[in-house]
């Protein structure tokens, strides 16, 4: 059974014509999917729908056996808090929290996610430290300093640690490498894939950079699954 299934999903922003129409899209548990999505292809909208922040007008989006459309807004928020991790292109972190607090934040908002960490025998900080270490952030001083002291590359790795903590079922990465230089990009991508695998999380990696797609189990072009996408001439 797939982790995520979209079927005949249609979405329109208020007072606008339908913007997104996807007949079928699936992600299997633990699968790493590369989604190519140039701007205007409905990428942000799709991610909003999958994460339950937006709700589709038509069709079915099921995640982990639950139909998101049938859940209340609050229940969708809980699903996201417990079973999804999100990494954005930039500015992933809350500027007023320390690195450590940023990483453990999802576990503060979801008891289920916190329990997954603590049932493994670790406390939150130990797990956060382990993840940050795996991602190459070992400087103890860094952990309790404000995130604004970090370089962009470091910030993205902290965001990855936050997405990964508590082993959510799905990691959504929205152009997480586009602010990084080539070397940092490759390293980040490798770490993200490795850790997702380690946690057993499926990974939905969105980028306009086709060159990154080779490392994934599967490659999907949003302009092809979204029948309403403005296909560049």
């Amino acid at each position: 059974m797939s982790l995520l299934t979209l079927k005949d999903v249609e979405f329109a922003w208020p007072n606008s014509a339908p913007f997104l129409n996807i007949a079928s899209f699936e992600i299997a548990p633990g699968e790493h999917v590369f989604l190519k999505g140039p701007s205007g292809s409905g990428k942000s909208t799709l991610l909003g729908l999958i994460s339950g922040v937006l709700s589709a007008q038509k069709g079915e989006i099921s995640f982990d056996g639950q139909d998101l459309a049938k859940l209340s807004g609050g229940a969708r928020d809980r699903v996201r808090a417990t079973d999804m991790g999100v990494v954005f292109q930039l500015f992933n972190l809350l500027p007023y929290l320390s690195v450590m607090s940023n990483v453990t934040l999802p576990c503060k908002l979801s008891a289920a996610r916190r329990n997954r960490v603590t049932n493994g025998g670790d406390d939150l900080e130990t797990e956060a430290r382990r993840l940050l270490e795996r991602l190459g952030l070992t400087d103890e001083k860094l952990l309790n300093s404000p995130v604004t002291n970090l370089s962009v590359g470091q910030q993205q790795r902290v965001a990855a640690a936050r997405a990964l903590i508590g082993a959510p079922k799905l990691i959504i990465a929205d152009e997480p490498t586009s602010a990084l230089d080539t070397r940092a990009r490759d390293a980040f991508l490798a770490l993200l894939k490795e850790e997702s695998e380690h946690a057993g999380s499926a990974l939905l990696f969105v980028s306009h950079d086709d060159g990154l797609g080779d490392a994934f189990h599967r490659r999907v072009d949003l302009t092809q699954i979204n029948t309403l996408a403005e296909v560049p001439a």
């Binding site: 996201r80 417990t82 934040l105 908002l109």
Partner: peptide, 8 residues
Amino acid sequence: VLRAVGAG
């Protein structure tokens, strides 16, 4: 960001 990490 808060919404992304699960805040309603």
